[in-house]
Amino acid sequence: MVAVRASLEDMTSSPADQPGATDTTDAKIAAYAHPERLVTTDWLAAQIAAGATGPGTGIVILESDEDVLLYETGHIPTSLKLDWHQDLNDPLTRDYVGAEQFARLMTARGISRDTTVVVYGDKSNWWAAYALWVMSLFGHPDVRLLDGGRAKWVAEGREMTREVPSVPAGGDDAAYPLSARDDAPIRAFKDDVLAHLGKPLVDVRSPGEYSGELLHMPDYPQEGAVRGGHIPGAKSVPWARAAAEDGTFKPRAELEAIYLTEQGLSPDEDVVAYCRIGERSSHTWFVLTHLLGFDNVRNYDGSWTEWGNAVRVPIEK
């Protein structure tokens, strides 16, 4: 079986670049509630140059995209692919993989429980945020996003490669431990949302989807919701409002102006975010939880493809 253990030697060889260390090079990131959840392209490039990244080391970089082939066209050196559909979803039940399959996915990428995982991807990190959120369901302690994702890395002319790093083989004892998935704190199901009605809900889809004029994302395939509209009481805050032009997250003050001042949300409230299948709302979940420090945000991954088809649930237009 393919398995590795993060080498303690690697982790202590260069104290200035300790994998677990927070990226403190950027004032914008330092201002967020949980700056340890985000890294800059500069920071990541320095880690790669120092040889501190790759399967079996202290930092594993994962690419998670909408397009399943984008990784193969070229990726950040030493990174591996984690596909939202092929890897993270159960092939039969509409649910995520279980503890055993998750452990296999991590082990096959040279990740151990104490590895710092940096995720990046296309579409302003939608799918990267989704992968981060799923890893959080399994309680992986240190998983971060690359601010700006794939597009920023490419725009800066940084190195891309088609070389897939090999994963060093290890013994069974080096395998990622079976870690129970704990959905309740950050994942909402339909019944949870029904019980939540009247409390803050954030609909992160496009305005047309929110109003019910569109049953799917503009320019995206129809994914079969029979009714359009939104969950009663949901505020419309399209996910992209949290992103700057270059795909990075907006500074904390600008995010607070949107979510706190304009929308009246409060970090101590229970909030549920949703979209169409839970990927765009993972982005907003990340913003509220890790950038603004909300204590209790849940992502409703059933989202409109469930709510818009469910029998006898209320909707608003």
Binding site: D67, L69, L70, E72, T73
Partner: peptide, 9 residues
């Protein structure tokens, strides 16, 4: 577009 390699494939 090149950023849609599956579709291009």
């Amino acid at each position: 577009p090149p950023e849609a390699p599956t579709t291009r494939g």
